[in-house]
Amino acid sequence: GSPLAQQIKNIHSFIHQAKAAGRMDEVRTLQENLHQLMHEYFQQ
């Protein structure tokens, strides 16, 4: 897949890990990143 698709997959797993660790501030930051990446992805 594209590097962007790979990045989106990575962030999904980072979010999963951050949630499991209870780091909600990190989850929020990652979700904002994910949102931006998704936006770029669909602009392609």
Rank of each mutant, 00 (worst) to 15 (best):
residue 24 M to Q: 06
residue 13 S to V: 13
residue 42 F to R: 10
residue 41 Y to E: 02
residue 6 Q to V: 11
residue 36 Q to A: 11
residue 39 H to T: 12
residue 37 L to K: 03
residue 17 Q to A: 14
residue 23 R to L: 10
residue 32 E to M: 10
residue 22 G to N: 06
residue 38 M to L: 14
residue 41 Y to C: 12
residue 28 R to D: 05
residue 14 F to Y: 11
residue 3 P to E: 13
residue 28 R to T: 07
residue 7 Q to R: 08
residue 32 E to R: 10
residue 38 M to Y: 12
residue 28 R to C: 06
residue 22 G to L: 04
residue 12 H to D: 02
residue 32 E to W: 09
residue 11 I to W: 02
residue 21 A to L: 08
residue 6 Q to D: 10
residue 18 A to W: 03
residue 25 D to Y: 03
residue 40 E to D: 09
residue 35 H to C: 08
residue 1 G to E: 11
residue 1 G to R: 06
residue 15 I to C: 04
residue 41 Y to R: 03
residue 16 H to R: 14
residue 11 I to Q: 02
residue 1 G to I: 13
residue 2 S to V: 14
residue 42 F to C: 07
residue 20 A to Y: 04
residue 9 K to S: 07
residue 9 K to Y: 08
residue 19 K to I: 15
residue 7 Q to F: 05
residue 1 G to C: 04
residue 29 T to D: 08
residue 4 L to F: 06
residue 30 L to Y: 04
residue 4 L to I: 09
residue 42 F to A: 10
residue 27 V to I: 05
residue 25 D to M: 03
residue 8 I to T: 01
residue 42 F to I: 09
residue 33 N to H: 15
residue 7 Q to H: 06
residue 31 Q to F: 11
residue 36 Q to P: 01
residue 9 K to E: 07
residue 17 Q to I: 13
residue 34 L to S: 00
residue 22 G to Q: 03
residue 24 M to G: 05
residue 39 H to F: 11
residue 29 T to Y: 09
residue 32 E to Y: 08
residue 23 R to F: 05
residue 5 A to F: 14
residue 17 Q to K: 11
residue 8 I to M: 04
residue 44 Q to E: 09
residue 15 I to A: 01
residue 7 Q to Y: 06
residue 20 A to L: 13
residue 27 V to W: 03
residue 24 M to P: 05
residue 17 Q to P: 01
residue 12 H to I: 15
residue 33 N to M: 15
residue 42 F to T: 07
residue 22 G to F: 03
residue 6 Q to A: 09
residue 35 H to F: 11
residue 36 Q to C: 08
residue 19 K to A: 13
residue 22 G to R: 02
residue 27 V to H: 02
residue 40 E to C: 07
residue 18 A to E: 02
residue 16 H to T: 11
residue 4 L to T: 04
residue 33 N to E: 15
residue 4 L to C: 04
residue 40 E to Q: 12
residue 2 S to Q: 10
residue 42 F to Y: 12
residue 26 E to G: 01
residue 18 A to Y: 04
residue 35 H to E: 13
residue 20 A to E: 12
residue 8 I to S: 00
residue 28 R to P: 03
residue 27 V to Y: 05
residue 11 I to M: 11
residue 40 E to K: 09
residue 40 E to I: 10
residue 8 I to C: 06
residue 34 L to W: 02
residue 8 I to W: 03
residue 29 T to S: 10
residue 24 M to F: 13
residue 9 K to W: 09
residue 34 L to R: 01
residue 22 G to W: 04
residue 39 H to Y: 12
residue 3 P to Q: 13
residue 5 A to S: 10
residue 20 A to R: 07
residue 8 I to D: 00
residue 31 Q to A: 07
residue 3 P to W: 15
residue 14 F to D: 10
residue 35 H to T: 11
residue 34 L to V: 02
residue 16 H to W: 10
residue 32 E to I: 10
residue 35 H to K: 15
residue 41 Y to A: 05
residue 4 L to P: 02
residue 29 T to M: 13
residue 30 L to W: 07
residue 39 H to A: 12
residue 31 Q to K: 09
residue 9 K to N: 06
residue 42 F to K: 08
residue 37 L to P: 00
residue 19 K to G: 03
residue 1 G to F: 05
residue 7 Q to T: 07
residue 13 S to Q: 14
residue 43 Q to F: 08
residue 42 F to M: 11
residue 34 L to M: 04
residue 26 E to F: 05
residue 29 T to I: 13
residue 17 Q to W: 06
residue 34 L to H: 00
residue 9 K to R: 10
residue 24 M to I: 08
residue 23 R to M: 08
residue 16 H to S: 12
residue 9 K to A: 13
residue 28 R to V: 09
residue 28 R to L: 10
residue 23 R to E: 05
residue 5 A to H: 10
residue 41 Y to N: 03
residue 9 K to H: 08
residue 13 S to W: 14
residue 41 Y to L: 09
residue 32 E to D: 08
residue 34 L to T: 00
residue 44 Q to L: 12
residue 29 T to G: 05
residue 18 A to N: 02
residue 12 H to Y: 14
residue 36 Q to N: 09
residue 6 Q to L: 11
residue 15 I to N: 00
residue 16 H to P: 01
residue 42 F to P: 02
residue 40 E to A: 10
residue 36 Q to I: 10
residue 25 D to E: 12
residue 16 H to K: 14
residue 25 D to C: 07
residue 15 I to E: 00
residue 43 Q to W: 07
residue 10 N to L: 15
residue 9 K to M: 10
residue 40 E to T: 06
residue 6 Q to F: 07
residue 4 L to A: 03
residue 23 R to V: 02
residue 33 N to I: 15
residue 13 S to T: 12
residue 39 H to L: 15
residue 28 R to I: 10
residue 29 T to L: 13
residue 19 K to P: 01
residue 39 H to V: 14
residue 4 L to G: 02
residue 6 Q to I: 09
residue 39 H to N: 11
residue 9 K to V: 06
residue 12 H to S: 06
residue 10 N to K: 13
residue 20 A to I: 11
residue 33 N to S: 14
residue 21 A to E: 11
residue 15 I to Q: 00
residue 22 G to T: 01
residue 39 H to W: 12
residue 27 V to M: 05
residue 29 T to P: 02
residue 25 D to F: 03
